[in-house]
Design a protein around this nucleic acid. Structure first.
Lengths: 218, 218
DNA sequence: ATTCAGTATACTGTATACAGAAGTGAAGGG
DNA sequence: CCCTTCACTTCTGTATACAGTATACTGAAT
């Protein structure tokens, strides 16, 4: 194994995204570069570079002259992102060779079953969901697409946090996951894509309701 | 009218993208920050920030420890990007309210007609194509989608340069544009999306052939 | 009491300086 | 003659310093 050198900027990026995923920052607040850099123990230069990089992913907003701020969380933003990622994952399935689809369906089903069997922590839930979607897109030869999807998925973390703890919502999502796997197992690509899009679009009202409950006046 | 303040980084970004679109840099070469910053008359800091920003768009690659380089141009990269943007523009059409589709079709047809009437310079051709695609996505309420599509479109500029000067290729593309407009005018959304995807996917072999002709061993 | 001007402060945007890694080439050993 | 090694150069990655803008505050005038 070769030691992988990592630049400060990259470390900062992952650190920030981890914290965002953990809900550590209040979305909508603006970012004080000095205090954040001190908190992370780095200088402003790599921090700014990391923020610029992340601002392309939609988690951070930049206002000219006023610096960066945590992108406000909102129903609109979530809906737009979901529409895009649903289309992209559908594309990934369409690009997957037919011979691969059944195998992926099989693995997805196994994974979904394994998950429902063992109740898990919040982190486990996220990891499982990420694995599910990564597996879903794994058959597509379009690497750039995979990267884009992963990036969107990461940006949606801050919304998915709202799921955690709500058994009902999670149960429905799990059922939808199984529906996708079954459609793939049956080699019914259109049905799988439809189920996939339904899974994403169903999540919109669920999350929005959770948002309204937690954050008044979104 | 309010004076629009623009930060150096933003100016650098557009400047670089313009030059990339003009084919000023050899793709695959690595970027010397010092010489480029001197050439642009700025310091390395805003230049680096611009490069980081652009590297998210696929025009610039970053190798840890070795700095930035112009993303190598290649058939694979182009194909992958086209698949994605085709899906996203199709999504934009699907999200457009039905009432808007006919209007957009009308405007597209008008624009296409106006274009074929007046033969134009290379820059005009790019502008027209951009306007066409911007108009195509203008009916979708998903602003983030519009931004993403625009960003991809910009990244594909360096490939589209290969079109310029080839009357045959351009003629075929123009015909496809008109087919899209007609389908929209007829309120036939699926046909429009199919024509749109065909337009994009047809461009792949065209561009790849042009690539092979100009750049040996891609 | 309110509003506006003026000033002070805090923070971003940019430039410069420094440190360390990657590349380069010549000298020496096999 | 080829390969290795070591010094040297070049360039990136990071830190710090400087400049300019936005914001908050104070005080005076209406």
């Amino acid at each position: 194994m070769s030691i992988q050198r990592q630049t400060l900027r990259e470390q900062i990026e992952t650190e920030i995204m981890d914290r965002v995923g953990a809900g550590e920052f209040r979305m909508g607040d603006n970012i004080n570069e000095v205090s954040l850099s001190e908190e992370l123990g780095v200088s402003r230069t790599p921090l700014r570079e990391a923020l610029i990089s992340l601002s392309q992913q939609g988690v951070i907003t930049r206002v000219s002259g006023k610096g960066f701020r945590w992108a406000p969380i909102g129903a609109n933003d979530f809906t737009e992102a979901v529409q895009i990622i649903a289309a992209l994952e559908g594309l990934a399935l369409r690009l997957t060779p037919a011979s691969e689809l059944a195998r992926i369906g099989r693995e997805l089903a196994a994974q979904a079953h394994e998950f429902t069997a063992s109740v898990s922590s919040a982190a486990d839930i996220h990891d499982h969901d990420d694995a599910f979607h990564a597996l879903l897109a794994s058959g597509s030869p379009n690497k750039r697409l995979a990267e884009t999807v992963a990036s969107y998925k990461l940006a949606l973390r801050r919304y998915e946090r709202l799921y955690v703890g709500n058994a009902d919502l999670m149960e429905r999502a799990a059922a939808e996951h199984e529906a996708i796997a079954e459609a793939l197992l049956a080699n019914d690509l259109p049905a799988a894509i439809a189920a996939l899009e339904a899974n994403w679009l169903n999540s919109v009202p669920r999350i929005i309701n959770a948002l309204k409950a937690k954050v008044p006046a979104v």
